[in-house]
Design a protein around this nucleic acid. Sequence first.
DNA 1: ATGGCCGAGATCCTCGGA
Length: 258
Amino acid sequence: MLLASWNVNSVRARIDNILGYLDSSRPDILMMQEIKTEEKNFPYNEFKNVGYNSFVSGQKSYNGVAFLSKKKIENINLKFFNDKLNQARIIVGDLKLKTKTIKLINIYVPNGNPIETDKYIYKKNWLELLIKQIEKTKKDYGNIIIGGDFNIIPDEIDVYNHKMYLNDALFKLEIRKKLRELINLGFYDIYRYFNNDKQEYTFWDYQAGSWQKNNGMRIDHFLISNNLIDNIKSVNINKKPRSKIKPSDHTPIECEVN
DNA sequence: ATGGCCGAGATCCTCGGA
């Protein structure tokens, strides 16, 4: 089973790119972030026509997350924890396989810049609430996959010039520690698990020729609960969608699950 | 040495992104 996660930066502006990606990579499940639209304007039919069901948490202009899935995803939950600003940043559901059920958690973590503002406080609080709720969930469910745009650069190797990002909400030590705390609940950063010292990115800014210069960062992740580690066959950052016409600034991360 | 983008939504600019 191929599981993918992609910050599409508007599902409607990106519809041709997304359909192209589904056609060439055929993921069983695609977790999308930043769909930037309400449910009433979500292109359900375009995805239905190519064999995917949509499960959507929408919001006008900003944020928004969704699952596209060939199979049904059950017990969809848009209120995994109480986000005081009520932004559409998380969607949770159960994937029932023959031998097990996997809890799928699709997240779009707040950016948090600039760091001297409420936006940074919101990011930190959001991560703390997420960690608390994952800790609770871990007691009842062994099989958890958290995927999405974490807006966190895990380590120096994960960005083209880490010194430039020391006081950035994506790389501040305080924020990276939150990711570490989450992983320490019993997860693997599955990209790094399979790639010890490989330097690859999932995001390149639209500005300053970042893509051409490979000035990127690895901020989209899959965290796999310990129980599932033997079920993961491979992980791949698929750079093709970033090279297309009118691309998202992110590219998909893909994970092959038994 | 510097600056370079893009999407949404309401107007021809602002906000947010990272």
